[in-house]
Design a protein around this nucleic acid. Sequence first.
DNA 1: CATTTTTCGTTGCAAGTGCAACGATTGTCA
DNA 2: TGACAATCGTTGCACTTGCAACGAAAAATG
Lengths: 156, 156
Amino acid sequence: MSHSFDLSKFLPYRLAVLSERISRRLAVEYERTHGLSVAEWRVLVHLQSGENLSIRDIHTRVNLEKPRVSRAVGRLQGAGLVRKMPGQGDGRLVSISLTDKGQSALGDILPVVSQIEAEWLDALSNGEREVFFKVMEKLHATLDQDPSARPRPRLD
Amino acid sequence: MSHSFDLSKFLPYRLAVLSERISRRLAVEYERTHGLSVAEWRVLVHLQSGENLSIRDIHTRVNLEKPRVSRAVGRLQGAGLVRKMPGQGDGRLVSISLTDKGQSALGDILPVVSQIEAEWLDALSNGEREVFFKVMEKLHATLDQDPSARPRPRLD
DNA sequence: CATTTTTCGTTGCAAGTGCAACGATTGTCA
DNA sequence: TGACAATCGTTGCACTTGCAACGAAAAATG
């Protein structure tokens, strides 16, 4: 007798579908208005929090592979949104920072994106929000103890 | 003054990180043991529920673009896990079904994958599971009313 | 019936992705 | 100090992906 299995009730599948739908919805905004990809968007946002970051900084904190970050930064530089300078002190590092144009683009996008997120969160009660995030944390904690799982990306 | 924004607390980002980590963990299983990609895995699983499906059936129910399904089916056929026959009645349709080898591969993978999912769900209380899935549904419902969002894939 | 539209699956093509490997720079340790 | 190892960012390469366009087949329209 065959193992009964319903993909539509499978946790990883449901998460993937929801996550993808939400990502797409957001991408509509920064893609249409500023031609950004997901990787470029993440890099750009992360640069807003701190200046003079290296590729590796972004790589470890933003959950993108190193080559992906490198190329995203290259495209952002080509678009004039980002500036690359040799890192002082350590000659291997590259110091990346936002240009005025990059700041301005972020200024356009962030309010829109925050507004969309707010609409999603407003549909939930306080308790639901709390439990939802707690569950995500618990799932990460379970994965942390699984040697076959990837390490959790730093979220700080 | 600049808009404060913390990517690590941004709902879409957190969802993407968790979803990707979970997907990767699963992919380890069916990729290493049977050389399947995510698309191939989804197609294979969906074929288990019903026989003689068309590309379009899979496309609409499994949240994969049509060309992606077509190519995944082609690779599965090449690996001997799937059989393609011209659809009777409608000459445009392609009738896809599992071979014995495909059934056998699923028989290997499904218990392992279900076990991993069970470990994740067991870390949650009944209430947490309930709220978590309810929140996912609510987020979908909010997206349903957003004309800029993609339609929700059928989950049946 | 004849003609136009729609649907189905596939393919072309440009672009992005993951992984390994590379040169360059820095750190480590005998 | 000198040899070796580790780290940083980039690049090569094979592969996948998304989107548009295509031919074949069926449906809709007159």
